[in-house]
Design a protein around this nucleic acid. Structure first.
Lengths: 224, 224
DNA sequence: TCAATTAATTTTGTATACATTTTCAAATTG
DNA sequence: CAATTTGAAAATGTATACAAAATTAATTGA
C-alpha cells in the first residue's frame, strides 16, 4: 500500500521510492485508476510517472496490459555492480584525462575531509556514522560523474545505481574497518585524478566498486 | 518539418527517427499542440512520446517550458563509442563466462556467414553491400547483448547506440578492406566466446568498437 | 528613448469523458 | 463433463476542456 502523506514529492518520486524501498514488491500490478485514487491525482500524472519509471527500467510494460514491478534477481545485482564499475571507471578515466576544475577539486576534498573526520574520531559504528559516510560517498562519486562532463555517462550511471538499492532493502552493513578501507580507496582515486593518471584512476575506481560489490553480496547472503 | 506519411510507426518512433536523421536539428522546440496538428493525433500520445524521448536522452526538458532537441557535440560522439566499447566488452565477458546456447550460436554463425559471403564475393563497395553488412553487424552485436541476459546492460547499450547515429547523418563510409577487417574481428570475438575466454572476448570487443570509433571520427572529419 | 510593469498570448500541467482492448467468468454446445 | 463461445467488467489508449505557468508584446512612466 502506498502512503498518501508526502504530497511534496512528485508522483514519480513517490512511486520510485515505494518500489526501491520494497513497499511495492515485484509482480505488483500498477493500475492507473487505482493509483490515481490512492494518490489523489488524476490519471494523467500517474501515466507520466509510470512511463518514466518504465524507461528507467523499474517497471515492465506491455501495450494494453499495463505496468508491473519487475523482478530484481540477485544475479542482476552482481551484474549491476560490474556495469557500475565499468562506467565509473570510464568516468574516472575521462576526469583524469581532462583534469579537475577548482570547484570540483574543492567539492571532492570537502567530502574526503568530512569522511576522514568522522572515521578517525568515532570508534563505534552507528546509524549516524553510516548516514554521514553515505552522504560523503554519494558526493564523491557524483562529483566525478559530473566532472566527466558526459551527460550520457552520468545518465547511465544513475540507472545502474538504482538496481542495487532494490535488493538492499537494509543498508549494507559495513564495519568501521571496511569503511576506512573504502575511504582510503577514495583518497587514492583522488590522487590519481590530480596526477592525471587516467588508467590508474580507471583501475582504482573499478576495484573500489568491486569491493563495494563484495560487501553488498555478503550482506545479502547474511540476511537471507 | 515532419512528414505525415508514415502513420504505421508510432508517434515515438516517428519523432525519434526525425531527430536521429537530422530532420529536427538541435535546438528545435517540440511543442505539443504544433506536433499534434502536424501528426494528426491528440496531445496525449505526443506527450508520451516526448517523455519517452527525453528519458532516452534525446530531448532536453524543463518544467512548464517544454522539450528541445538537444545538442550532440562531436566530443560526445567519441565518448559514446568509449562507453559503448566498455559496455559491449562487458557483455562479451558475461557471454563468454556463461556460454552461448545453441540458438544464439546459430544466429551468430548465420550473421557471420552472411557477412563473409558478401565480402568475399563482391569487389565493389555500394549501398547494397553496406546495407547487408549493416544488418549482419546489428545481428551480431544484438545477439551478444541478448546472450548476456542482462536487461540493464542491453538497455544501456541501446541508449549509447543512439548518439552516434545523430552525428552520422551520412552512413560511415567504410572501404571494403575496412569492412573485411571488421568482419575478421567479429569472427575472432566469436571464437573467444566459444572458447569461453572472457577476458579475451572483452578485450577484442573493446578494440573492435574502438576501430569503428576511429572510422566514425575520420568520416565526420572528412565531411566537414 | 529606455526601462519597467502589465496585459494578452502561448504553452505546458491536469482532469475527465469516451473509445478500444483485454480479461474473466458464465453460459452454451459438443 | 470439457471445451468453446460470448458478454460484461475492467483496464489502458485517446481526445478534449480547463487551469496554471511562462513568454511576448504593448503600454505607461520617467
Amino acid at each position: 500500500m502506498i502512503s498518501n502523506a508526502t504530497r511534496s514529492l512528485s508522483v514519480t518520486d513517490h512511486l520510485r521510492e515505494a518500489i526501491l524501498s520494497g513497499g511495492l514488491p515485484a509482480g505488483t500490478k500498477l493500475q492507473e485508476v487505482r493509483l490515481s485514487e490512492e494518490l489523489g491525482v488524476s490519471r494523467t500524472p500517474i501515466r507520466a510517472a509510470l512511463q518514466s519509471l518504465s524507461a528507467a527500467g523499474l517497471l515492465d510494460y506491455a501495450p494494453n496490459r499495463g505496468y508491473v514491478v519487475r523482478e530484481f534477481p540477485i544475479s542482476e545485482l552482481v551484474d549491476a555492480y560490474e556495469i557500475r564499475g565499468a562506467l565509473e571507471g570510464l568516468a574516472a578515466r575521462f576526469t583524469a584525462e581532462r583534469g579537475l576544475v577548482d570547484s570540483q577539486r574543492q567539492t571532492i576534498e570537502q567530502s574526503l575531509a568530512r569522511g576522514a573526520d568522522i572515521l578517525t574520531s568515532s570508534s563505534v559504528m552507528n546509524d549516524h556514522v553510516l548516514g554521514i559516510i553515505g552522504e560523503t560517498n554519494a558526493g564523491f562519486h557524483d562529483t566525478i560523474m559530473e566532472a566527466s562532463l558526459n551527460r550520457l555517462l552520468s545518465q547511465m550511471t544513475q540507472m545502474s545505481f538504482q538496481i542495487p538499492r532494490v535488493s538492499n532493502r537494509n543498508i549494507i552493513a559495513f564495519s568501521l574497518d571496511e569503511l576506512r578501507q573504502r575511504h582510503d580507496e577514495h583518497y587514492l582515486i583522488y590522487e590519481a585524478l590530480l596526477a592525471r593518471s587516467a588508467t590508474k584512476a580507471d583501475t582504482l575506481m573499478r576495484d573500489h566498486v568491486a569491493s563495494v560489490k563484495f560487501a553488498a553480496v555478503r550482506a545479502l547472503r547474511e540476511t537471507r
